[in-house]
Design a protein around this nucleic acid. Structure first.
Length: 232
DNA sequence: GTCCAGGGCCGTT
DNA sequence: AACGGCCATGGA
């Protein structure tokens, strides 16, 4: 039976350190804006969407100087939708972004420090109450913007869990609880946060390179612990 | 042309 | 509770 700790070690050795979440820090230094807000925007834009399309939308937002909280909640929805068009689902996402901006302004006076300076479960419940933020988006915001220890489960993670398999059913909460239980035995504090961050990134890369829908099991680094094994 | 991507909401059963 | 349709672009 596969274990998250082993899987992490193997993937780490294979793919090395992956710099997630991808953020243009120089942009935020120059504009005195908060990179955490770019992460939040990115989590919405990337919902069921290839990152290459998200990059185009983020580039547009910077071009029109819209990548900050105030510009988002003050925006004209049609204009915002046009700007983020390359990311797909643009009408939906424009509404979600503006709504999140308004909530952060109204409930937290636009202060991300105080927003994130709370218990993880409190933050999570609040994020889940916002329209357009489900479990994966909430957890991505907490981990990659808030830098707090929570494990993000996505479609890739579910696929991996089915195939290896791990000893868990594949509901979001079950997978998250299982990974957190196993990994927190070995890692603590900031180290644990880094592991959650890195492992999710590793799973994404691995799923793109090998554990695709139509898997490429040839040269797969996890083949020893995987029971799916097919030769495609 | 078809398939798919770093989901979530809403209506129906 | 579980499932299907829907939202939409761009790259493989």
């Amino acid at each position: 039976m596969s274990k998250p700790n082993e899987t992490y070690q193997i993937l780490q050795k294979k793919y090395g350190n992956l710099n997630w979440w991808p953020i243009d820090k120089s942009y935020h230094l120059k504009n005195n804006s908060d990179p955490r807000f770019e992460v939040i925007v990115g989590t919405i834009l990337t919902q069921n969407t290839a990152w290459s399309n998200v990059e185009k939308a983020l580039k547009n937002l910077k071009k029109y100087e819209m990548l900050d909280l105030k510009s988002i909640y003050n925006c004209d929805l049609e204009k915002l939708a046009k700007i983020i068009q390359p990311s797909g689902f643009f009408n939906q996402k424009a509404g979600r972004l503006r709504n999140i901006g308004l909530k952060l302004k109204e409930l937290h006076n636009s202060d991300l420090n105080s927003f994130f300076d709370r218990d993880i479960n409190i933050i999570r419940d609040e994020l889940l109450s916002y329209t357009g933020i489900g479990p994966e988006t909430a957890d991505s915001i907490i981990l990659y913007a808030g830098e707090k220890p929570i494990f993000v489960v996505d479609a890739y993670t579910k696929r991996l869990c089915q195939r290896l398999p791990f000893k868990t059913d594949i509901s979001y909460d079950s997978i998250q609880n299982y990974f957190q239980k196993e990994l927190s035995k070995k890692y603590k504090g900031e180290q644990l946060t880094k592991v959650y961050n890195q492992l999710h990134a590793l799973i994404v890369i691995h799923a793109k390179e090998h554990c695709r829908k139509k898997p490429k099991c040839n040269k797969c680094p996890l083949s020893n612990q995987c029971s799916f094994k097919k030769s495609f």
